[in-house]
């Protein structure tokens, strides 16, 4: 259990949120031209990083808005939170 700072609502308990997995996976621009390998990469393959990972979260029991988070998966420490469409922090 940890606290999450929703960029729209402020700090709330993690149980109000739903994790949406790895962030910045770009939807293919030309889906019809994708090979099976490229589909597999897009749909299934994940970095699943132990350490600092970029991910999407949804404040599902609050404002229901999506946002991005940088989190250390080895100890669940949240490094940064930023809105959808914003550039990920570099540090």
């Amino acid at each position: 259990m940890f606290l999450i700072y929703c960029p729209f609502c402020g700090e709330r308990e993690q149980s109000e949120f739903k994790a949406g997995g790895e962030a910045h996976i770009v939807r293919p621009k030309q889906p019809t031209e994708l090979s099976d390998d490229e589909w597999a990469e897009y749909l299934f393959m994940r970095k699943n990083i132990k350490g600092v990972q970029f991910e999407r979260w949804n404040h599902i029991h609050g404002c229901r808005k999506w946002f991005n988070m940088v989190r250390d998966t080895s100890n669940d420490e949240i490094k940064a939170v930023y809105k959808m469409g914003e550039k990920p922090p570099t540090k």
């Binding site: 259990m1 149980s15 994790a19 997995g21 790895e22 699943n48 990083i49 998966t73 080895s74 669940d76």
Partner: peptide
């Protein structure tokens, strides 16, 4: 299981 990726061997209380 919790729905987020974690290697911390700790889960949520809820």
């Amino acid at each position: 299981t919790d729905d987020y990726v974690s290697y911390s061997q700790k889960g949520s209380h809820d």
